[in-house]
């Protein structure tokens, strides 16, 4: 009896599989997922955390060679990701852990370029597969639930003031090519790379995403978070114009 029920329960799956094989609809998708996953494991896993959870130790973040990717689907804009993987350009001026790539000079510390490695570039086909597989990773989905970015009207000079003077983001981030701090990722490309909801959520509480990251929680109010997301969207692409 019990076995009969088990067979009945698995019947829809069996039917679906049979139908998929006959029509050829499921096979390419499954194959693509497998190929993308395998590619990530082969090419990316040595530098990126693909499975989570995030490290909770200082030693852990210092040892990191690239950003965590187990919530890539919550973080990135898919179209940007596929393009960047084919033509990667440095986003973190001093690398994944800045402390490993700086040297003292008479004036101030500078980035030691000789210690920085370029990110490998992928073929168009591999980039498509990898980006698709990365966009399936949603470990941070719950944190984005309820995040609603509101469009605000913001004159550029007010955005500059907020970013530079009032909140001090400029201390660690560049808001233009060659202007700003170097220990955090450049932010004049942030809105090209990142989903608005992710930018909002990360700025609201960086440690919710990355418990030991060296970006402080600035206790930003919703109004300022909306303004900063808007500002990042305003400055994105300015350098190319």
């Amino acid at each position: 009896m019990r076995r009969d029920f088990a067979m009945l329960r698995s019947l829809p799956l069996a039917l679906w599989l049979a139908l998929a094989v006959v029509t050829g609809t499921a096979a390419p998708t499954l194959a693509a997922d497998d190929a993308g996953g395998a590619l990530l494991t082969e090419r990316c896993a040595s530098c990126h955390n693909l499975t989570g959870p995030a490290t909770t130790t200082v030693e852990g973040i210092r040892a990191r060679k690239g950003p965590d990717l187990f919530y890539a689907g919550d973080k990135f804009r898919a179209e940007w990701l596929e393009g960047w993987l084919q033509k990667p350009a440095r986003i973190r001026p001093a690398g994944a852990f800045y402390g490993d790539h700086i040297k003292a000079t008479d004036k101030w510390d500078v980035v030691d370029e000789s210690t920085l490695a370029a990110h490998p570039s992928l073929s168009a086909a591999d980039a498509r597969l990898s980006a698709a597989a990365l966009m399936q990773r949603h470990a941070g989905r719950e944190r984005l639930q309820g995040v609603k970015v509101e469009e605000v009207s913001l004159p550029m000079f007010m955005g500059d003031m907020l970013f530079d003077k009032f909140k001090g983001c400029i201390a660690c981030h560049q808001s233009g090519r060659d202007y700003g701090g170097l220990s955090g990722p450049e932010l004049y490309t942030a809105a090209e790379r990142l989903r608005p909801e992710f930018m909002y959520s990360y700025m609201q509480n960086p440690q919710a995403w990355d418990p030991r990251i060296w970006m402080p929680n600035m206790h930003l109010a919703a109004e300022d978070l909306n303004k900063l997301v808007t500002y990042l969207q305003m400055i994105a692409g300015e350098e190319e114009q």
């Binding site: 402390g99 701090g181 220990s183």
Partner: peptide, 19 residues
């Protein structure tokens, strides 16, 4: 050290554009 510098002297990699 990102701001206070490798030697703690206040000359980190972030200071160049700081007001």
């Amino acid at each position: 050290i990102q701001c206070h510098g490798l030697h703690g002297t206040g000359s980190g990699i972030n200071v160049r554009d700081m007001a």
